[in-house]
């Protein structure tokens, strides 16, 4: 009994056989090296972080701590005259505060369908933004769908085709959207087309990569079966690969549609039109009621689109977390 309790109190590792103590020694050594590496990593990391923060503060036109009080002032002062004003701004109803200035002029931007029936300006812009996103998602997904099969090792081998298609996709994915939008704006003048093409290009790259990864993970047995039946390459892709990958493709496409709604808002703010531009103008001119009206509209539409696409995706491929795709944006 004495020996057992003695052993229990002892930290395991003392009084071991030669082999075990060797292992223990190695383990301790490993632990030491790991700790040293961890310490170095942490120090380097903290240094980079500190330098980054310092740099960011220096580079900013207003310093963080100087400007922090103004943030709260800005929030305090940035309130509409009455909560109803937000509602009026949203639906283009005349304001009782109207003084001829742009700030309270909600009605002049109405989009009339008939003599009396109109679409409120912000809603109209929101519809444009969402349509930009939808059109680019559809076209981008269609092109990515065609391209992805030529980027999959299991369908075209590891040759030149795959290399070229993959590089094209990578460049399309990484190419700054605003440059495409800016170049097209210079050629086609301001309008939604520049935004559509810019987002489409990015969509092709991003979806293409996700698509070919799905294709590469697909089961090749059906393909072999059809090959043995004398089916051509296109027929094998159509019947052996597409049925397997389609649910995942659609799911990724829906996720992309969500991201593209946000992207088209931002591109809009840079000059692509739509709700983004209207928002930039409203907040830049201190039009509180209009700003809040747009924020509420955007919030509602984004939540609605997210929920709808999440529901659709669940129906398509079951309860699988697909947020991985978000990071691929």
């Amino acid at each position: 009994m004495a020996t057992i309790s003695e052993q229990n109190n002892r930290v395991p590792g003392g009084g071991l056989g030669p082999a075990a103590s060797m292992v223990m020694q190695h383990y301790r050594q490993q632990l030491r090296t790991r700790r040293v590496y961890t310490a170095i990593a942490i120090v380097v990391f903290l240094f980079v972080l500190g330098a980054s923060l310092n740099f960011a503060n220096d580079a900013n036109s207003g310093k963080f701590f100087e400007r922090l009080p103004y943030l709260f002032d800005f929030i305090k002062n940035f309130v509409p005259d009455s909560p109803m004003e937000i509602f009026r701004a949203m639906f283009d109803l005349p304001s009782p505060y109207a003084d001829g200035s742009l700030k309270y002029n909600y009605t002049s931007d109405r989009v009339y369908i008939t003599e009396t029936l109109y679409i409120p300006h912000f809603l109209y812009q929101l519809v444009i933004t969402i349509n930009i996103a939808l059109v680019s998602t559809i076209i981008g997904a269609a092109i990515a769908f065609v391209l992805c099969f030529f980027a999959s090792t299991n369908l075209v081998g590891a040759g030149a085709t795959r290399f070229v298609v993959r590089r094209i996709m990578e460049v399309m994915r990484a190419f700054p959207e605003i440059v495409i939008a800016g170049l097209l704006t210079a050629i086609l003048s301001i309008g939604p087309i520049a935004a559509i093409i810019a987002i489409t290009v990015h969509t092709i790259g991003a979806l293409g990569k996700l698509f070919f990864e799905v294709v590469e993970n697909s089961d090749m047995k059906p393909d072999e079966g059809l090959r043995a039946a004398g089916a051509s390459w296109v027929e094998r892709v159509r019947f052996a690969i597409v049925p397997q990958v389609l649910p995942n493709f659609v799911s990724y496409m829906l996720l992309r549609a969500e991201i593209n709604v946000r992207a088209s808002t931002i591109i809009g703010a840079v000059g692509g039109g739509g709700i983004g531009e209207v928002f930039r103008l409203a907040i830049g001119r201190d039009h509180a009621a209009k700003t809040y009206a747009i924020i509420i509209l955007l919030l509602i539409s984004i939540v609605a689109i997210d929920q709808f696409s999440a529901w659709l995706r669940r129906r398509l491929i079951g309860n699988q977390s697909f947020e991985f795709g978000r990071g691929e944006a």
Partner: peptide
Amino acid sequence: FDFLRSIDMLIWALFFTRSFGPGPIPGI
């Protein structure tokens, strides 16, 4: 989380640009 996520990055960016002035801080 949903609230933070659903307000577009654009809105946050413009909001903080308005209060901190242009630079990396509003971006961060």
